[in-house]
Design a protein around this nucleic acid. Structure first.
Lengths: 348, 348
DNA sequence: CTGAAAGCGCTAACAA
DNA sequence: TTGTTAGCGCTTTCAG
């Protein structure tokens, strides 16, 4: 528990000025290899680690990245955090997690966090990635930010996303190809941009297959289990119930599954089911959920990379990054009860 | 995007020395109310926020708390983080999340994090809360730490926990009272202390009810869905299969549920099921899981409180804090197929 | 290629 | 009750 070694201790041991140590540690050029090695050896011997606060105070770089999220989005959080964390650590950065209440004064919350911590950058997860107040504040403060899965203004600032529309389209195609014709859709939260895109993909696939979408096949949801259950109940208790349901996220799909169960229907025998996101939970259900895998961890890792690069003064060669999704076909989707296999449809 | 105001700007505006501003901001005594008000007004007018790095550099307090976890424990993470975050923010602290690889050099990882960030304290979630290397390192570094749900040496250092044994006992009683006699148990990860305690509670309840626990009613699990599924398969494919299964955590219980389903058994009709933790997932399954609620968010909030107090030089009046659990009876547990209701058993 | 000086924004002594 | 002086550990000037 003796005092932590400082840069001066290293300098003394390596018999150089402490500025030289600083140079070596920051990988600046113009240091003789011999000197560099001596410094490195001294630092290792003393088990020296730079004081992040001191570095930040003078250098303008705090080496701190903020991970901003709003409470409802738990599933995103863990995976995204893990991905971002990985890259942060590799780059010598640390991740500060900050929940934001979208309903309250977003600008104020962000100012608070940024200015006391002097964050080098922030990762914005939905729905904050679409909050104009958040973006405006960050711009005004001049703080780098990367949005995860924003639904609008993709060119305006760095962001990482997948093609939600295409993924929803592909997933719907999958259901159609299984032979389903009456496919229900549970909409996502109206405030999330992804909701619109996913519905658009669903509608495109249906239209392309010449399938109608009567109003009673669409149910409003809010990305929660409960809302999915309510929607499922509405959808499945109709006389002409759909043989398949596509919910705009996994949690809602599980809600539909619960509703089906309550109505005595079992998946996939009586009802094919598809979700979206490939949440951890989608593998824990019985049957496991067919879904579109959104690589949240990779997306956030990429975002962290971008922020680190930006903080280092680099320019992003690819500020908007579209990552591939994947359709995970699992046990929850099967052909409808007595349906003929549909003829192979044309591809995208 | 103009320069952030500093303490000196506030001092100038309030027409006092900048030390006085510092006093006001730190709520130090010996400042005339009139002066204090003037300073506060100036700070508000300038929208001043102290630079955390500068404060930490000189004051010895970084106002940063670390949240340490190991990857497997995702369910803990989100809830615990949220709880801790809440209190941190109230106290003007920030939470830095740091994953630790229990398999690698724990001491080194912790040293790394602590010494570069000068954390004021850390919250340790299982299984790190039981890692001797972690505890020893933190002690050596003199860094305050609060352990969440440690299984040993509770008196040695601050910690927050529930009585796992009693909770497992109560849950087992619940199954017994439903009329189950052949109750299977899926063990947790052997490296987690909670595994032992939960099994002990199970065994005590069974013994007290005069029920035998033949070896084939115990299956090894590792706190994962897959291990639960394997254990469930082993347990349920026997000739004399149990009518109820108690898994040492929720994820494994869901695994057992999947295995049951595969074997054509449905819960709770053919099989009563209980988990542990009350993970978010336990409500998303069909049927919803009967489980013991471990208030991870409250536990971590309490831990954050303790660390803030410690950092402020206070002494903990209650360094070891036991919080109450709750048994959540949900749809997954019901009486066995053709069982007579057992006679009410004596209480704890 | 290396070093000396200055100062980041703040708190901790001490003095007034 | 208030102000002055150092100095935290580091990076950024600017000299050599």
């Amino acid at each position: 528990m003796s005092r932590q070694p400082t840069i001066k201790d290293v300098a003394t041991k390596a018999e150089v000025s402490f500025k030289t140590v600083s140079r070596v540690l920051n990988r600046e050029p113009h240091v003789r290899k011999e000197v560099r090695d001596r410094v490195l050896a001294a630092a290792a011997a003393l088990d020296y680690r730079p004081n992040n606060a001191a570095r930040g105070l003078t250098g303008g770089r705090s080496r701190l990245i903020g991970f901003l999220y709003d409470n409802p989005n738990y599933s995103y959080v863990t995976q995204g955090e893990a991905g971002a964390l990985l890259r942060c650590r590799e780059a010598g950065y640390h991740l500060v997690v900050e929940p934001i209440d979208s309903q309250a004064d977003v600008a104020r919350q962000i100012e608070q966090i940024i200015s006391s911590l002097r964050l080098d950058g922030v990762i914005l997860t939905p729905p904050i990635s679409d909050a104009p107040a958040a973006l405006a504040t960050l711009d005004r403060l001049g703080v780098a930010h990367v949005r995860i899965a924003p639904s609008a203004a993709r060119e305006a600032a760095p962001c990482v996303f997948i093609d939600d529309e295409a993924a929803a389209y592909a997933l719907t195609r999958h259901l159609i190809e299984l032979g389903h014709k009456a496919i229900g859709f549970v909409q996502g939260h109206p405030d999330h941009g992804a909701s619109r895109q996913r519905q658009a993909g669903f509608e495109r696939a249906m239209a392309q297959a010449g399938l109608a979408i009567p109003a009673q096949l669409i149910a409003q949801g809010y990305f929660t289990f409960e809302s999915g259950m309510a929607a499922g109940e509405a959808l499945l208790s109709q006389r002409e119930r759909p043989t398949a349901v596509f919910a705009a996220n996994d949690k809602m799909a599980l809600g539909v599954l619960a509703a089906a169960r309550r109505l005595g229907l079992s998946a996939p025998a009586d009802l094919a089911l598809a979700g979206f996101d490939d949440n951890r939970v989608s593998r824990l259900s019985s049957p496991q959920l067919t879904t579109a895998h959104q690589p949240v961890d990779v997306m956030c890792a990429a975002a962290a990379d971008m922020l680190v690069a930006l903080a280092g003064g680099e320019t992003l060669d690819q500020p908007t990054l579209q990552l591939p999704f994947e359709i995970e076909v699992r046990a929850s989707s099967a052909a409808p009860p007595r349906a003929p296999l549909s003829s192979p449809a044309s591809a995208v």
